[in-house]
Simulated assay, not measured.
Amino acid sequence: MSVLIFVEIDNGAIKKSSLEAIYYGSKVAENTQSSATVLAIGAADADALKAAGKFGAKKVLHAADEKLSHENSLAYADVLVQAAQQEDSKIVIMAKSGLGDAVAARAAAKLKAAIVSGVTDLPDTSGGFMVTRAIYTGKAFATVEMNTDVKVLVVRKNAVEAVETDAQASVESFSPTLRDSDFAATVKNVEKAGSELSLTDADIIVSGGRGMKGPDHWDPLLELAGALGAATGCSKPVSDLDWRPHHEHIGQTGIKVAPNLYIACGISGAIQHLAGVNGSKTIVVINKDPEAPFFKAADYGIVGDVFDILPRLTKAVEASK
């Protein structure tokens, strides 16, 4: 019996959020006296798959059929179910994402499993199987008891602090049965955002609001992001005004992020924006208005003009390298 961890692949490598899910799954396996097995679907580098062992996986099942080269939640869910049945997996784990949520829901229905999304901590198995999850867009937490034979956990980013070792996992080819009905809709073309860092996987995000005063005044923010190796984001009003691309919109109706460090520049801190960033480990707010609501959610606050503060921060970061 094993804990099965579904991972997402990007450019041949396992996504960072999925590496965290592997570590989380390895800890669940330890607590339930089982082993951690990874399921990777699509084209992937063999060495990258072996590296799953650094985060606690013992084995990787790799389904590399050409039909699975593009993300397809219907087909991926079927593959996941077949892998779970082959490995006799009673616990299935994956990182929370658009694809993860879709695959988890479909797989749970096929496995007749209970499903909990937004998991924030390791399960408590001392008196059953209790799981803590974020609710109300992260403003509160609920403890859920899972009573089904098979359980599906969709883990929020930074649920646990992943620790690497020098271990490597064995990689086995996995050839599931693919149903034609899962490919009724096909992907014709995929356009990616180039070399930009993914907001959902970024460890550091520097984000701007209307306090940046317009689309032509973002250089200080971009320079700080470059010095930190950070992704860039923005508030909803900024994307609505076309100051920044819409894929950078962070908030309740945009992308929800959970980086280790979130730096908000000239963002007032409306509740809709806070709902998208409250999973961040550390929040730094820069705003010239000392009454800005964002300061109440900040770990560190700087009252001042962003156009004065940002160059100083960039200079300090570069000096520390």
Rank of each mutant, 00 (worst) to 15 (best):
D299N: 13
D65F: 05
A162L: 11
H70C: 14
A167G: 01
N158M: 10
V3A: 04
A298R: 09
D308F: 01
A270L: 04
V163G: 01
P259M: 07
L228F: 07
V81C: 03
L74Y: 14
K16D: 12
G12W: 13
A57Q: 01
A108G: 06
D289M: 09
K50S: 13
N147P: 02
K151A: 03
M146P: 03
E30G: 08
M146C: 12
L310P: 10
P290Q: 11
I255Y: 09
K157T: 10
S268W: 03
I135R: 02
S97R: 10
A297F: 06
L111D: 05
M146E: 09
V60K: 08
V155E: 11
I250K: 00
A51Y: 04
E161C: 00
G214W: 12
N287K: 08
A64V: 12
I91T: 15
D124I: 05
I267E: 06
E191G: 02
D124R: 05
S235E: 13
Q82A: 06
A140P: 11
Q82F: 05
P245Q: 10
P290H: 08
L68S: 03
V28Y: 02
F129S: 07
S280H: 07
A292W: 02
V285Y: 01
T148Q: 15
K296V: 06
V257I: 06
K192G: 01
G53S: 11
D219H: 06
E223D: 15
S320N: 14
L61F: 12
I135P: 03
H249V: 06
T200C: 00
T125G: 05
R106G: 11
